[in-house]
């Protein structure tokens, strides 16, 4: 039940063996929808819990930013996964993933409007009423914006955090990707976000494709993202940070080097 601390990694079955072999690891994150609500838990997660490694369920399909009320069964699943893993908190995104009966297949951005803030806060409140632990909300990487935003990004996020009392899961790679694709200054955004509300950070890799920077989680973490992590830690170092990798897994030495780079930049102990 210890809160996330230091350098962690997203637990995925493909790299379960690698993660199990990290001697200094104190926390991981697991995609909540991949954990069953009953029946046996994945062996790798059980072993980590026995080592007292904190496991944070990370939801990707709640659609908290959807205009429709969040589906109670999805919240119940997230709550039961949190209980089963004795998680210190859960996390989800400020995004929607379905509408009009169709699945988008990925996290989509919200209009930065008062209406979207209201819809999101209502859904977060519905989730909080059922969850046994606090929730941290993650702003996403978006390839496009809605045409009629009423609020800027910092106002939009701060308003949602203030009204829900939720923690912030800040993804440094998302901040980098959005700023690069919009042609804005990522530091200007960092300076206006409530950095003291960060539960932990995400750091991930991406790549340029067709004139856009894509937050792929299947490429190495580029150095500008590490630089931005350094800038963030210099302003207010969060309690924990986590490497997300979701495919094209590199050989173990490369993954270890990425974790070591996160430790080096943040000043937290090496976990490898």
């Amino acid at each position: 039940m210890t809160p996330p601390h230091g350098v962690g990694i997203g637990w995925r079955t493909e790299i379960a063996g690698f993660v199990a072999g990290l001697p200094g690891l104190r926390f991981v994150e697991v995609v909540a929808e991949s954990v069953p609500a009953d029946g046996p838990l994945p062996d790798g997660l059980v072993a980590l819990r026995e080592r007292d490694v904190a496991v944070v369920p990370h939801g990707v399909r709640l659609s908290l930013g959807g205009a429709e009320p969040v589906e109670p069964a999805r919240v119940a699943h997230l709550a039961s996964v949190a209980r089963r893993l004795d998680a210190p908190l859960v996390s989800e995104h400020i995004a929607f993933v379905r509408a009009g009966g169709r699945e988008a297949g990925h996290l989509l951005p919200l209009p930065r409007s008062r209406g979207a803030v209201d819809a999101t806060c209502a859904n977060v409140a519905r989730a909080q009423a059922e969850l046994p632990v606090p929730i941290a909300l993650e702003p996403i990487a978006a390839l496009f914006d809605w045409p009629d935003d009423e609020l800027d990004e910092a106002e939009f996020l701060t308003e949602i955090l203030d009204r829900t009392g939720a923690l912030l899961l800040l993804d440094v790679a998302n901040v980098y990707a959005n700023a690069r694709n919009r042609g804005t200054d990522p530091l200007a955004l960092l300076d206006r976000l409530p950095l003291d509300r960060i539960a932990y950070l995400h750091v991930a890799g991406g790549a340029e494709h067709g004139g856009f920077y894509h937050d792929t989680h299947t490429h190495p973490v580029p150095s500008p993202v590490l630089d931005l992590l350094g800038e963030l830690c210099a302003r207010h170092r969060p309690p924990a940070l986590l490497l997300e990798r979701d495919g094209h897994y590199p050989p173990a030495p490369e993954l270890r080097a990425e974790l070591d780079a996160l430790a080096g930049v943040s000043g937290y102990p090496v976990v490898t």
């Binding site: 205009a67 379905r98 988008a104 209406g115 009629d148």
Partner: peptide, 20 residues
Amino acid sequence: ASHPSGDLAARQAALVAALV
């Protein structure tokens, strides 16, 4: 956008339809 409360659902549905 001129109907802030009711149309978020319709606009989100139109966007998903356009994307997928």
